[in-house]
Design a protein around this nucleic acid. Sequence first.
RNA 1: GGAGAGGUGGCCGAGCGGUUUAAGGCAGCAGUCUUGAAAACUGCCGUGGGCUCACGCCCACCGAGGGUUCGAAUCCCUCCCUCUCCGCCA
Length: 425
Amino acid sequence: MIDPLLLRTQLEATAAQLARRGFALDTVALAALEAERKQVQTATQELQNLRNTRSKAIGQAKAKSEDTTALMAEVAGLGDRLKADEQRLGEIQSRLAEIALRVPNLPDASAPEGRDETENVEQRRWGTPRVFDFPVRDHVELGVHDGGLDSEAGARLSGTRFTVLRGGVARLHRALAQFMLDLHTTEHGYTECNVPLLVNPEVMQGTGQLPKFEEDLFATQVGDTRRYLIPTAEVALTNLVRESILEAAALPLRMTAHTLCFRAEAGSGGRDLRGMIRQHQFEKVELVSVVRPVDSAAEHERMTRCAEVVLEQLGLPYRRLLLCTGDMGFAAAKTYDLEVWLPSQNTYREISSCSDCTDFQARRMQARWRNTDSGKPELVHTLNGSGVAVGRALVAVMENYQNADGSITVPEVLRPYMGGAERIG
RNA sequence: GGAGAGGUGGCCGAGCGGUUUAAGGCAGCAGUCUUGAAAACUGCCGUGGGCUCACGCCCACCGAGGGUUCGAAUCCCUCCCUCUCCGCCA
């Protein structure tokens, strides 16, 4: 959520900033609703004040055994008026909150203005795509051999966009996750966390998935209790600081988790249907940082580097994009995407996304820190990044390390996790 | 799932219809004293919100949500969570 004060006091300027990312704020409706809120809230508080002072007077009169009938007459009917006003105020405020919860974050000044992914700005490249002296196979072909990558089996069990992994491919997948987790915990200063995959609706609202993106989520219902499957560990890790006040010394807080992720992928019909690029269930190693506001820009660069190091150690060519305003996620003020080279597609494909969410999630979660200068609790800044997507890393390793006979060379850094094996398949 | 005990400010803890404007203590911050420190003493010290140029004034919050009442931390109802024991279980 952006600062509601902006919607009250700088409505037009805020609308202009949101327009940069293609979000149309209905300023006329908002201004009218806000004027009504102001009027009703003032009236309600005046009535509450009247009730409080009268009630106190009755108490004092009774203590002195004085007659209270005159005072009692004064408050007659006040309760009903108050109840009506309070209800009306509550309705206005929840309408305002509903609007505010659906407004995306303000884009950072350094995010280039643009409509969609075609206007993202490439920042750098690392590595040189390998030149093959044999016909390149894609990961689906490479995986069919011994059923190492079996989407038919996945479909039989659960439908489209589910895959079964077996044997060396399954182990390579596991090795990738282990390698990433070890790298981030031992080299990059992140604390390993193991988190619930099912979370309650408040948590989903905290990081911005609800109320706007419900159709992208898988949900469970047991009795009256509704829980959602996390679409990313960002949800669980970031919400660990919800409704808390952190000491300044506890920051920066850096956490990582390897989890399953579940996405309904509504609205992506037909895209990337082949193979493991876009699945309903996939694994990811996630990085989350909670920092002081002044530190978030630097932390964003640092986090993105942590993700890049994964690809560099795996020897996978990649490029870094600075996302334009129109391609950023709901909660992000600024985002870098990392795209890995896929020989079969002769292009770079997204494998990581690192976002600075500034105070947007913190405000929804009421996550604060105690500023030692002011002594007051202030909102933290939160950041999240994939470090990196395991399924897509598997695809990238299979394709970039393939051999003419259809086998796959195991990248050096993964061999300790593969019992020393140098190739699979 | 069953039985019992609890949820009050950063922490401990009193309050169980109206002198509560949430006592008191601890921790913290500032000051006095001191060569310095400690002790002692004095003051400050929850969160969110509204109105105001401002000084300030006001509203809400005692696990959550309802209810009773002129008035609720306190009484009633529903729910949640924590702890102890029992049961079940990877």
